[in-house]
Design a protein around this nucleic acid. Structure first.
Lengths: 206, 206, 206, 206
DNA sequence: TATGAATGAGAGTTCATTCAT
DNA sequence: CATGAATGAACTCTCATTCAT
């Protein structure tokens, strides 16, 4: 009656993981379904038992990385502390993320997806991934910190939206640079320097 | 030497320009040699008279964009002014670049090349483009400004290398975000806010 | 002999019925083994317990339809009536068949099998279905009617083989046209008109 | 300047002819693009220089056969003759068509296209070929002959639409049977017998 | 020199069939 | 027996590159 029992979700995860591995190594364009199949240790046709198409597989891979990423960055903002301390925590998280278990290769994959999205945006195509929504989420979170800090009079009256954007984007920028030059670029040091400057830059009276 | 050589260079430029136009519209992956030929108003086979391969053509296209970009950003740092003023000039240049004649589409192309480079770096391949060198050049330039400022006692004693890197990368980060969300993202406002915070963050006594 | 054998036949029938249902809906080319399995409410692999291959299953399906069809057309030619009356009975049977319980979809399936056969014939392949034999059977039956009629002097001295063939083929031709244009084609009317002309055409003295 | 000059239409025709040859031999389902390419003596990719897709190629092949067919059947109805003579001419054309230069293989191809159409009709899909229109055209032409004959009192008052349909469909039916049994089926004889019966069947007073 | 017709390796995808459970 | 997960050959179609003209 019951033949081989397969945990479909487990298998999907296996395939997705294999896909991410290949994507990290070969990039979006150069990753062939056959490569993924081989990496997953299965036949080419089997992929299509679990995913309708290359696009679907890659979309799931993207979501998978995002979830993983979001786990890492689960912003548990400390309560009952000063705004400055909260921002310090956020900035130090950047470093910890960079040195954490989150595979750095995955950033590269994420970046490629992102670029694909940028291209779609540019060509007026329907976007596959709602990266903007993800950004907004983070930015809104950080923005609230600034808003409270301003309200409480703990920091200068800067534009909270802009400040939050800057905080997010400096991380992206540095990640990209690091990808290009893993050997000699001092990620942690640069983040620390940034933190010092930024904190000082928003403090009330210096 | 002979007029022919001029012709060849002229033709190469025509083709490169066409390639960039198509690249900006279609992206790296979706740009076919045929598209480029059509855009250049020549035959498909003629491309191969001037460029050995797609890769070579795209490499030249990349270099072409970089030159164009470098013209725009030709950092004519003002002399005999305070470090702070110099930095203000650099930051305001970011906005001007964003609104300048440098076609914004080309940033996208540049970004794609960059990613290609990142991927190459990751795979241990020979890098096609020497982006890192370009970055270094800019960073060294800005770094010198910080070093002088520190030496003169005009700004705090921060790590000049890091500070320069931050300045470069915030621009990249914001450009990327802007590409993703051209409509609602306030590029200039964010840069201005950043400038305010950054300047204050490096000033001697706040 | 053993109850199992009955089970097997029963199951085969179930599968065959399911196959015909799918064939009627999707056509020969578009019917997948998986569709048949699903329609039969069994697993894909189970099909191969009962049929060696897709071809074998379809062959059995064809035979099944033919049997069903033959039941419908079981030419119980009336005895002790005039040849003309017999022919009228045959012609009216065409209409009744068209409006009878014999699922009209099955004609389509039959037609597809037929074409497959024509193709096989053309390629010198071994024919899968013995359609010609079936035709012969019917034609011989009808031919005998004409022969008797001629012998008895009730109808003109026409070629009985040809006349029988015409009678069979007009039905096929009209069925095909009807399939192409179910909405506006008047099957019964056309058959009736044909009957009138044909009967008059073979009568002794008009 | 001008490279190889190719008559696109001529080449298209060559490919279409090759396609029809293969279609006649292998059938709609079994004809692969590679087969067609081989038959045309060109590379697989070249097909796509002239036809966007398999469907398009096959559609053109169909139209090509139809044109060829229509040339053959160009009903030049004789003028100033009796209706009976006209009908005799039509019927004798059936035989001449069958023995004419019109490649009989092409009927098979046509029939397959037709069946595809029937299937499309059945599944409510958009029809690719407008076969019904072609039939209508012929039927209307023949119908007019009957109408005039009835008006002039030369033939019995039968339903002209039905009579025309019968005339067309008997040809189709016999062609199909002939395809199934090229060796022993007497096409011409059967048509002649039909002619005799039909003419007598519609005559005024027999 | 300029061309574009021709190409074929290789991409994504399908599906009849197998076989471990 | 029954199953459906796994498979890979084979399909349609793409496109960088070649080469006869």
């Amino acid at each position: 009656m019951s033949p081989k029992i397969v945990d479909v979700d487990e298998k999907k995860k296996q395939i997705t993981d294999a896909a991410i591995r290949v994507l990290a190594r070969k990039g979006l364009k150069e990753t062939k379904m056959e490569d993924v199949a081989e990496a997953a240790g299965i036949g080419k046709g089997t992929l299509y038992e679990y995913f309708k198409s290359k696009d679907e597989l890659f979309l799931v891979a993207y979501r998978h990385i995002m979830e993983e990423f979001e786990c890492q960055t689960d912003l548990k903002l400390p309560e009952n502390v000063t705004t400055i301390d909260t921002l310090k925590a956020i900035i130090s998280m950047m470093t910890s993320m960079h040195t954490s278990d989150f595979p750095l290769d995955h950033f590269q994959v994420l970046t490629e997806f992102w670029l694909e999205e940028v291209k779609s945006a540019n060509q007026g195509k329907k976007r596959q991934f709602d990266m903007l929504a993800t950004y907004r989420e983070y930015i809104d979170l950080v923005k609230a910190v600034f808003e409270q800090g301003i309200q409480k009079g703990e920091i200068r009256d800067i534009n909270p939206e802009h400040a939050a954007t800057i905080l997010m984007m400096i991380f992206d920028g540095l990640m990209l640079l690091w990808m290009l030059d893993k050997n000699s670029f001092d990620f942690k040091g640069t983040v620390d320097t940034f933190g010092g400057i930024f904190i000082k830059g928003i403090q009330k009276q210096g």
